[in-house]
Design a protein around this nucleic acid. Sequence first.
DNA 1: GTCTATAGGCAGATAGAC
DNA 2: GTCTATCTGCCTATAGAC
Lengths: 199, 199
Amino acid sequence: MSTVNRENARRRGGDTAGRILDSAERLVQARGFNGFSYADVAAELEVTKASLHYHFPGKDELGLALLARYSERFGAALDAIEAEVPDAPARLAAYVALYADVLRGERMCLCGMLAAEYVTLSEPLRERLIGFFDVNEVWLERVLEQGRADGSLSFAGPARETARLIVSTLEGAMLVARPYGDLERFTAAASGLLATLTA
Amino acid sequence: MSTVNRENARRRGGDTAGRILDSAERLVQARGFNGFSYADVAAELEVTKASLHYHFPGKDELGLALLARYSERFGAALDAIEAEVPDAPARLAAYVALYADVLRGERMCLCGMLAAEYVTLSEPLRERLIGFFDVNEVWLERVLEQGRADGSLSFAGPARETARLIVSTLEGAMLVARPYGDLERFTAAASGLLATLTA
DNA sequence: GTCTATAGGCAGATAGAC
DNA sequence: GTCTATCTGCCTATAGAC
């Protein structure tokens, strides 16, 4: 790397690949994977499209990198909840807060957005998208079982099904709340959901 | 209209505009408004793109026609439920069945799909999309109040909020179930939701 | 690593013949 | 109403200089 480029990277405040991912992630979450282009990212970062192709040869590779980073970050957030929050109801509330934070940035969940575009995605992207939801379900399932065991949560049937209900409700609440530009719509739905579990 | 064209229309089994809407609707529900093109519809109908532009000058007009027809049809289905199904819990179940029927065709709800792409939509499209959700909420609100009044349904807080929770959950359940290609995922979530209201 | 330049294709859209 | 032909612009992607 040249001295000039190193200086540029420093001034920009981070590695270029990371900045590309930041920009692309925001664009996908706002407009969808089919609703953004390399040109959009290039304009935002004030670099050329060709430069983006150096870091991510094709849009599919970019999508895979996006999803990998998102899943990793989400997984880390789940680990953090387990480390910092002991009881099951509070863990669920912290889980909901993860979604609320995304929506606050006027973004849709990356994976909810990709789920809408599922039919148009490459096979590798599809597989990893499914993997994201699976991880969420497994994590919620454990929290739900913990809560049922210690009496802090109450629900009927397999914990896995309630876990799926939670994921569905939160994704749907984000989806519908965003057009209204109304975070309260999301939090109200989430509260209503959690209320049925702590009753 | 020429004799030949009238014959073509007859053989095709309907007016051209309607067939265009049928094709476009299916494509939007499967791939998104940004994921289909006039070329896709033209290929499916074995006509030229120019012909489509005669019926719907631009993609935006096509989208508006799509949404208008969908809303009208959905409204008619809600009217039919009210006419044929008397009690509130059964009305909710019938409402859920409307969504399940869409998903059975491996489609996402048209409006859920457009909600995901909201940021990229024209202002007229945005307004009418909001209108669709409003109509759903109002209808559900009335059913919920009816059920609470006659004791067949039980929920806390304003009926409108629970109505929003129902819409969110069903849209989210469709969104997540489709990648798994698993209708049962949707019906399980819907059953779980309805169970909390009849308890 | 980033640039200029460009390829090749598909997008939405229009003019005008039939 | 549908066609052929064409336009303009944007898309993803690549070659090669610096």
